[in-house]
Design a binder for these strands. Sequence first.
RNA 1: GCCAGAGUGUUGAAAUUGGUAAACAAACUCGACUCAAAAUCGAGCGCUCGUAAGGGCUUGUGGGUUCAAGUCCCACCUCUGGCACCA
Length: 907
Amino acid sequence: MNNKTNKPAEYNHTKIEKKWQKFWEKNKSFVVKENPKKKKFYGLIEFPYPSGDGLHIGHVRSNTAMDIICRKRRMEGYNVLYPIGWDAFGLPTENSAIKTGVHPTILTKKNTNTFRKQLKSIGFSFDWTREINTSDPKYYKWTQWIFLQFFKKGLAYKKKMLINWCPKCKIGLANEEVVDGKCERCGATVEKREKEQWMLAITKYADRLEADLAEVNYLEKIKLQQKNWIGKSYGAELWFNIKNSEEKIIVFTTRPDTFYGVTYVVLAPEHRLIKELESQIQNFDEVAQYVKNAKNKSEIERTAENKEKTGVELKGVIVKHPITKAIIPVYVSDYVLGHYGTGAVMAVPAHDDRDYAFAKKYNLPITEVISDKTKILVISRSLKPEFYKKIEKLGTVVKKDWLIEVYTENIDEVFELAKNNFIGGPWYIHSEGKIKKILFHSELENKVFDWNSENDINSAKEYGRKIGIKEEQLDFSDIRQAYVNDGIMINSGKFNGRKNTEIMKEITEYAGGKMVTTYKLRDWIFSRQHYWGEPIPVVNCPKCGLVALPEKDLPLKLPMVKKYQPTDNGESPLALISKWVNTKCPQCGGKAKRETDTMPNWAGSSWYYLRYTDVKNSKNFAGEDKLKYWTPIDWYNGGMEHVTLHLLYSRFWHKFLFDEKLVPTSEPYLKRTAHGFILGEDGEKMSKSRGNVINPDEVVKNLGADSLRIYEMFMGPFDQAITWSTDNIIGSRRFIERVWKLQEKVAKNYSDSEDVVLLLNQTIKKVTEDIENMNFNTAISGMMIFTNCLENQNKINKETYLKFITILSPFAPHICEELWQIMENKKSIVLEAWPKYDGTKLISSKAKIVVQVNGKVRSMIEVKMDSLQGEVEKEALKNEDVVKWTLNSKIIKTIFVKNKIINFVVV
RNA sequence: GCCAGAGUGUUGAAAUUGGUAAACAAACUCGACUCAAAAUCGAGCGCUCGUAAGGGCUUGUGGGUUCAAGUCCCACCUCUGGCACCA
C-alpha cells in the first residue's frame, strides 16, 4: 500500500464510496439484533414520502445529522438501531396514477427503488433489513388492527359534521391540514360540506398530551407549539336560565370576574338551542337565514370579515342575569365558534374588544365593572429611584416589564410625582389600555395632555410634530376601546374594591357556576374519500350497525380499480366497486356494505417506529420483548412542520396503545429535535416550477457523497433554514482532499509537538460535544482548523492521524474507511472506539494574556499558565506598547482575570 | 393582535461564565507553477484617517450597568416561523 515515495493515489471518490458501500452491505455492518448485554440506542428520522421527484437535498441534511449521531453511538459501544422505510400512501402518488393510468403500487415500487438507490449512494448507516412500507398489506394490516382497537374502545366514531372540503383534491381535510383557509397540499380555497366522517377522539387525551410534555426532552419551541395547539385554558362555566323554558344557556369564559358586566349573550350559529327554541323565537326566519349564510361561509370569508361583526337577535328569548336579575338579550353571531367552549359566550363589551365592537354596532349597553381609574401607568426605567419609595406610601405598586402599575386613590398626586421624577433619556408616549393622559417628555420640558379631550389630542399631535416625532407614532386612533387589563372591581356588588385577579373562583361559585378546563384541540377527522390509503375495516350492517371486521379478515386489502378519481359527490372511488362494497355482516351474516372511506396519510406514520423493532412479525404489530428492548426512541429528529400533526398524532396513538398495555412506555420519543429547511439558491423554497431544485445525485457524482455530507453539515446552524450554495461546496471537497493528502506525512515513530497534541485533544473534545448539541458546523470548522495545523507539520504521528480519522468518520465515512485501511488496519472503522480526549492535555503550559489600558487592547503577552496577578502585572508593564499608554498617567485600578486579561485603568 | 426566534464583513457564518469581534469557509485581488487555462500552493481581504509607523470607529436603533458589552438591563425598529373572532 505505501510505496517508496509515500505519494498517495489520487482521491477517487466514486471508487472509494462504491467500495465501502458494498463492504458495509456485505458485512452487515449496520444490521442489529437485540442484545441484552449491550446498551441500546434507537435513533429515528421521519421516514420519507417516496415522491416521483426523488430524494430531496433536505432529506440528506436531516439523515446525515442522525447518521452522524448513530455512527458515533456505535463507536461509543451502543447497540444502534437506525431504521428506514417509506411513508407510501398519499395524494401525489394517487394523482400521478390518475394522470398516467399506472397503478399506485407500481409507482410506489418505482419510486422507492429510486429513493433506496439514492439513500444508499450517500452511505447512511441504516439497517436495511428493517425496511417498511406503509402501503404494504403486511404493514397496514396492523394499522387497521390498531384502528379497530380505537373503534372497540369507542374512540373511533362516526359523526355527521361540517368538514373542510377541498374542491380540487376532492377530499375532506383535518383542521390541521387547512392553512389560512386553504388546502395545505394544493392551495385551493377550502369549502364547508356536511358529511359523515370517521373521527378519532384525540381530545380525550388532550390533558395528558399537554401534561406529559414535562417528561420528555423536546426542544422548547416544539413543546410550546404543541402546547399552543392543544390550547389549554382555565376558566368558568356559567349559566343563564331562559324564561319559559327548561333550557339554559351555558357559557364558557376565562374572565368570570367580569360577570356583572354581561349585557348580552351570544350563541354560535351551530348552537343546538337555536333549533330547540324555534317556537320561542319570534323572528325565526331571519335567524334561520343568518345561520344558513354563516354555515356557507368558507373559513377564509369568515376570517376576512374579522373586523365587521354581524348578528341577529333572538327576539322572544329572554334570559335573566343570575345575580343582578337584569333582563339580557340573546344574539346569534358567527364571531362565536361552535366547536370551542360551549358554543356560547357571555358578552362583556366594556372589557372585551370583540364584544365591544358588536355592542357598538347593535347599540347594546356597556357596563364597566373593572376600573382603571385608580390606576396610573408610568415608564419605570426613566424614573428616579427615590420615586418608588415615595410612591409606595401612596398606593400599591405592581411592576410589569418596563412599566409599573400603581393602584391608588390619589391619582393626581401620583401623576405629579411621576412627572417630576423623570430622569434623562428619550421621551415617551405611552398609550396602553385607557390611559387618561399622554405624557411627552424630553430633557427640555414635560408636557401633559388629557386623553379625553379632543383639543388636547390635537395639541398633543402638534407638539409631537414640533419635537420631531414620527407621524405614525402620533396616530392614537388604534387605541383599544375596551379595557382588557386588570384592575379594581366596580359595579359588582359585594366584590367592589377588590382586585379582579383575586376573585375569579369566588365570583364563579357565587354565580352558581364551576371552574373548568377547555382545550382548543378538536377531534381528528380520520376519513378520506380516496383510493390510495388504508381501507377502514368496518362493515355497515342495516341490522347491527357498524361492525368491526374480525382480526382473521385483516388485512382488508385495497381492491384493484380502473379509476382512481375521487367522485364529485364526495364518495371514495371504492364506493363504485359494488363487488367489493357488498359483503356480509361478520356478526349476523346478513347483507351489509363495506366502509368505503380510507384512512388519512397520517395513519401509517402514527406507529411506524414500533414496527421497526420487529418488521416481520405476523402475529403482533411488534413483539413485546422487542418493544421492551428498543423503545422508547432515544432521539427523533424531524421537521418543524410535523410538530402539530404527525408528532401529536403519534403521541396520541402511543398513549392509547400504552393504556391498552400494548407498549411499555407512555411516551414514544424521549428526545425530539428539528432541522431547518434548505432553500434554493435564489432563497426560495425548492420546487420544480421555480427550477431551483438541486439533485443530490449530481453532487454525489461530481464531488462525492462525503463532500455532500460535509457541506450540508457545514453550511450553517442545523436548526435554521439555509440557502443552498453550489459555489460553497467546493470548500468541503477541498477539506476532504487535504485530509487525504495528509496521509503522506504520517510516520510511525514520530512525536508530535505540544501544540499538535493540545489541538488534537481540544478537537476531540469539541467534536464530541458539538455532535451532541447538533452543532455540526462548528465541529467541522474545528476539524478544518486541525487539518490546517497538520498541514504545517513535516511529519504526523500515526496515532494522531488515526484518532483524527476516527472522529471525522461519522461525517465522511467512506474516505475515512479507506484511509483507515491504507493505514494498515484490518477491521472497519465502524467498529472502532470513539477517541477519548486527555483532560490533562487540553490546556497549554503558557497563557496568552490580553493587556488593556482603559478597556482598550494595547498589547498581548505570554506568561506561564496560572501566573498570579503580581507576575503578570510586572511583565505587562515592561511591555513597550503598554508603557506608551501608561507613561504619563497614574494607574488607579488594575483588573486581572487569570489566564485571560489584565486591564489597567489610568487617569 | 398574541406567542416564539433572529438581526454581526461582499456572502454562509464563529465567538464558553461579560474578557483580543469577524474563527472556519466562500467570493474577490495579487503572486508562484503553466505556452495557456484549470487544479494546486503562497499573500491580502470590516470601515476609516495616514506615504508609513500608527490611530480612530464597528455586531439593527437609542439609552443604561461595568474597568470591560455581540453577550446583561430598558425602550424602539425590522425580519422569519407558529397561532389567530379560542371568549
